[in-house]
């Protein structure tokens, strides 16, 4: 009985404030997770950038080259390939082969801005076309976009450069490679033609230092390079080649003052295009995220994955025009 009567413990009403805050460390946890996500995202973007520069841009140029090759082949056959200014920027002007540097049947396009150099080596405005009497200058990437001119700094005196234009095939003989501070070759003899290839040199050391020519270059073989060497292309390198008898020169366009080969140049057109491409990319990502939550994940990958990839590629392609044209 007594047990029944025994009053239970009474409910105690607490009047002080109750700590209802989340357990400590959750905020820091969220920040940590967010930061780690940002960093890994950044890492992914950088990896993408490297992947684009060293692999995908090469595919892009190869694609452009195949279309240009077809077009130039037709124009050469029809005799409508250009022989002098004015030539529309980006249209094919010549076919170049450099056996000593692993270049085979590359199409040279008109103009040397980054936009044109994405498609292939670019003929510099203000110089005559290759094979014509006078000095012709052709610029090309050495690192990105397949690096068409990546190995021309290994050319030696006497190497052959073959160029085909509407005016015929020309076999240039290389005079030598020069970098900053080397003497420019002598004046052209009357009627001679010179072809100067320009690219960003790889493995010849930083600017201002005495240029040491590796033994491998002297012996005529392309230098064996370490992986890290393959990632640097800092100083412009000129390769001069001459032909004793050029064909008469056609009209020459005026030089393009904005074609900056080795400096980062942000022209408004590129920036505007880039802004548009980035908008597309953001749109694609938003659509992907929406599909990810509303549909199933495989459906999102199948339907919008290619879209994200394509817009990313587009933005990378346009963004890379802001980089130096020769790198």
């Amino acid at each position: 009985m007594s047990a029944l009567l025994d009053p239970g413990p009474t409910t105690v009403l607490r009047v002080e404030a109750v700590d209802s805050s989340p357990p400590p460390g959750v905020d820091r946890e969220r920040l940590r997770i967010g930061a780690s996500q940002v960093l890994m995202g950044l890492s992914l973007v950088l990896v993408w950038a490297l992947l684009y520069l060293f692999v995908l841009s090469g595919l892009e140029q190869a694609h452009a080259q195949s279309a240009l090759y077809g077009r130039l082949r037709t124009e050469l056959a029809e005799g409508t390939a250009p022989t002098g200014a004015p030539i529309a920027l980006g249209s094919p002007v010549a076919l170049i082969s450099i056996p000593g540097a692993g270049v085979k049947d590359l199409v040279v396009v008109e103009g040397s801005r980054p936009t044109q150099l994405q498609d292939g080596p670019g003929h510099m405005l203000g110089s005559v076309l290759p094979g014509q009497q006078g000095v012709s200058v052709v610029a090309g990437h050495s690192l990105s976009f397949g690096g068409p001119f990546s190995r021309i700094d290994g050319l030696t005196r006497g190497s052959l450069i073959k160029v085909t234009t509407a005016q015929g095939s020309f076999a240039f003989e290389v005079l030598g490679v020069r970098t900053k501070g080397d003497p420019v070759p002598a004046a052209l003899a009357a009627g001679a033609a010179r072809l100067t290839l320009v690219t960003a040199g790889r493995g010849l050391g930083p600017a201002g230092d005495d240029v040491e020519v590796p033994d491998a270059l002297k012996s005529g073989e392309p230098a064996a390079r370490s992986v890290l060497d393959n990632l640097a292309a800092s100083d412009s390198v000129f390769v001069d080649a001459e032909l004793a008898a050029g064909v008469p020169a056609g009209p020459v366009a005026t030089a393009d003052p904005d074609a900056k080969l080795m400096t980062v140049s942000a022209d408004t057109t590129t920036l505007a295009l880039l802004a548009l491409a980035l908008q597309l990319l953001v749109g694609a990502l938003v659509a992907f995220a929406w599909a990810w939550t509303r549909w199933s994940r495989p459906a999102a990958w199948i339907a919008l994955g290619p879209g994200v990839l394509a817009t990313l590629w587009l933005a990378s392609s346009i963004g890379s025009r802001l980089l130096p044209g020769l790198v």
Partner: peptide
């Protein structure tokens, strides 16, 4: 004399991109 040009990006850009990517991935 040849007036050469040089590019900061060309010299260190790819390296730093690579290193940065690696570091970011590691720290992340």
């Amino acid at each position: 004399l040849t007036a050469g040009q040089s590019s900061m990006f060309g010299a260190v850009g790819p390296y730093s991109l690579l290193v940065l990517a690696f570091l970011a991935a590691l720290v992340g």
